[in-house]
Write a protein that binds this DNA or RNA. Structure first.
Lengths: 111, 111
DNA sequence: TGCACTGTTCTATGCCGGCAGCACAGATGA
DNA sequence: TCATCTGTGCTGCCGGCATAGAACAGTGCA
């Protein structure tokens, strides 16, 4: 379910980010306990992921109600994630593709 | 120098793998202490990376002499790394590209 | 008023990663 | 022989990650 070489709470955070990009601003997000049960993980671990997202103003928490994608979250996520991907992940991936003797164009073609 | 969310010894291991793919079978690899000094890391951390590679028969150690890329290391690395990349990393990357609405042409452009 | 949900906080425990420091064993060359 | 390189092994220490278990505070609904 999870990669063994990245902290679970970060993988949970990434999963929530994907969800925000899908459901959009203002939408309700899965509760700490529900997500923990679904992922087979301790609720504290999920809470830590959500607190990261709250620190980044991507999620609003309403005590007793639930968690919600913040206003403008999608827009800011698209910007920051695009930036991070193009400047960090993609160069590394492209170098790896070349080193393994694979063809970038071929891989992108059947997308 | 290192990503903050993956163990350093794994990032060191990846770096050594890249080097093996470059220098080829039988070539001498940087010593534990030299690589540790170069990366600004504890020698034990580098040793752990090398021991991973020895367990996978990708590196041979000669006590008092040094570390060497094992016979057939390059071939086996190309196979296993390609396999791992295509079945795990690439699908994730491709999904990310689509989710972020990135243009394939842009990714190919700055090659 | 209860009940069931929500997020949040606390304590304690265990494991892993990384560090510092030191020591040992094998190989090499002056 | 001796100095110096090599890989390997140990101790202790610390912080981060993840867990279990319990508890507190706020909301909504019957």
């Amino acid at each position: 379910m999870f990669s063994d070489d990245r902290p679970i709470y970060r993988q949970i955070r990434d999963r929530i980010i994907e969800r925000i990009l899908t459901v959009g601003d203002g939408a309700m997000l899965p509760s700490v306990r529900a997500l923990a049960a679904d992922a087979g993980v301790n609720p504290l671990t999920v809470a830590k992921a959500y607190q990261d997202l709250q620190s980044a103003d991507l999620v609003r928490a309403k005590k007793g109600v639930g968690l919600f994608a913040a206003d403008g979250a999608v827009k800011r996520l698209l910007n920051s994630e695009r930036e991070a991907f193009l400047s960090e992940e993609w160069p590394r991936v492209k170098a790896r593709i070349n080193r393994l003797g694979l063809d970038v164009a071929d891989l992108l073609a059947d997308a």
